[in-house]
């Protein structure tokens, strides 16, 4: 049984030991945050699933816009020094682009529309409510990333 994530507030990073692999790197999970398409909401829901239900205590995340704008803070260094897991909603791949912008590399990436193409019955309804199909798709995405990343 995996350990439960300790109580914390979001200004504190997860205890380092909770997200560090044998390689010594922290695992950073970055979804695209898309608000224009339902697949962006699916990426967000997949992130919630991974962090809260499927692999609590395994990942930490950071606001995607902060990667774009935090020139003087430690966000860029966090991205560059971590094992990065990215969930992109659409082929624009904003999460991946932001990681590269910070000088990092995506170690394990999943594209929601590609997962959707494998099983079109799991289709999100809208960005306001992705519906049961969207929630199933988010679980498919989360499981794909678990398999891809070996976590």
């Amino acid at each position: 049984m995996r350990p439960q994530r300790p109580a914390r507030n979001s200004r504190d990073r997860l205890p380092v030991e909770a997200t560090v692999r044998m390689s010594g790197k922290r695992r950073l999970l970055i979804p695209c945050s898309g608000i224009g398409k339902a697949v962006g909401e699916v990426a967000r829901e997949a992130t919630r699933l991974l962090m809260e239900e499927l692999r609590p205590g395994t990942f930490e995340t950071v606001c995607l816009p902060l990667i774009m704008t935090d020139d003087e803070g430690d966000t860029g260094e966090l991205v560059r020094s971590s094992e990065v897991f990215a969930i992109d909603g659409c082929p624009k791949k904003c999460a991946t682009a932001s990681v590269k912008h910070a000088g990092g590399e995506v170690d394990h990436g999943v594209l929601v529309v590609r997962v959707l193409a494998k099983n079109r019955s799991h289709r999100p309804e809208s960005i306001v409510d992705i519906g049961e199909g969207g929630r199933q798709l988010a679980r498919d995405v989360a499981m794909t990333l678990i398999e891809e990343g070996g976590v």
């Binding site: 695209c32 945050s33 898309g34 608000i35 224009g36 398409k37 962006g40 995607l64 816009p65 774009m68 624009k92 791949k93 904003c94 999460a95 991946t96 682009a97 932001s98 912008h101 960005i127 306001v128």
Partner: peptide, 18 residues
């Protein structure tokens, strides 16, 4: 989607970068 659906639109913020 509710208050001003025909008068507003959005873009994903990271899309400016990507």
């Amino acid at each position: 989607h509710e208050l001003r659906p025909h008068k507003t639109l959005t873009i994903c913020l990271p899309l400016f970068l990507a």
